[in-house]
Write a protein that binds this DNA or RNA. Structure first.
Lengths: 128, 128
DNA sequence: ATGATAGTGATAATGATTATCATTCGTAAC
DNA sequence: GTTACGAATGATAATCATTATCACTATCAT
């Protein structure tokens, strides 16, 4: 019942063209620049729909949601508390341990989110 | 420079008396019930101050922040997407792997947050 | 006492997100 | 082809957690 309309394809296209982690405003701005102006409410609905269909990934930060391409390996995020940059990492061993924990509790995992906060290499250097 | 005022002690007392994960409104309501009415802005400031001092722990959920006692072992959370219940778990092995990842990237970890979403045992049973 | 500093509380403001609602699109049935 | 229905759109209002403002108060050191 969820449709992949022209607007949603435009949103998907924007997100698939880069490795950025986009928020709704950035997507709306990029669309405006491309000439494809889309109402901000439609951008929000489109992002939610695309994420629900698994066509994009979402991560929930403290202040807002961000979206990224889904066509890459699952990964988690390192977030620099100084410059706001977002790095990605992949540790299947962590996921295995998560599954173990869930099994012990008879908990059925639908998803997870692991965020590491701190200073990226660049900001760490500047700090000293 | 951060002071532990009477209001903040009242907030701390509320949180230390249970294993709940409190949001600001719940704390304000509990204080009102206790007869210690405190302005909502003061509750927010108090929670932030106490968390900064390490006297309570905070976890950032999608919609709001919640606070809990700090006087127990570090742990992460299992969140039921149906009933909203929050369970806790502890897996030091996961933390070790996180440190490993950070070391590889020359990233300096200040904190982390691991949330597992899914169905708790109770809701899983009801689902079938 | 006198500042200096931080905290308080009522309330306004912020900012991301969601709801509303009239209109439009796409498709399936007639 | 026209009709009908469900979903989507877009402008805008509303929501809701949180933060800022500001006048006032408490605390503490000189």
């Amino acid at each position: 019942m969820q449709k992949l309309t022209a607007q949603r394809q435009a949103i998907l296209d924007i997100i698939n063209r880069s490795d950025k982690h986009w928020d709704a405003d950035e997507v709306a701005f990029a669309l405006k620049e491309k000439g494809t102006g889309i109402g901000i409410a439609t951008v929000y609905r489109g992002l939610a729909a695309l994420a629900e269909q698994g066509l994009i990934e979402s991560i929930q930060l403290a202040d807002k949601k961000r979206y990224e391409r889904a066509d890459k390996k699952h990964h988690d995020h390192l977030i620099c508390t100084l410059c706001g940059s977002i790095e990605e990492f992949c540790k299947p061993e962590i996921e295995k341990l998560q599954d173990l924990v869930a099994a012990e509790r008879e908990f059925h995992i639908q998803g997870h989110q692991l965020l590491l906060f701190g200073l990226c290499a660049g900001c760490k250097a500047k700090e000293s």
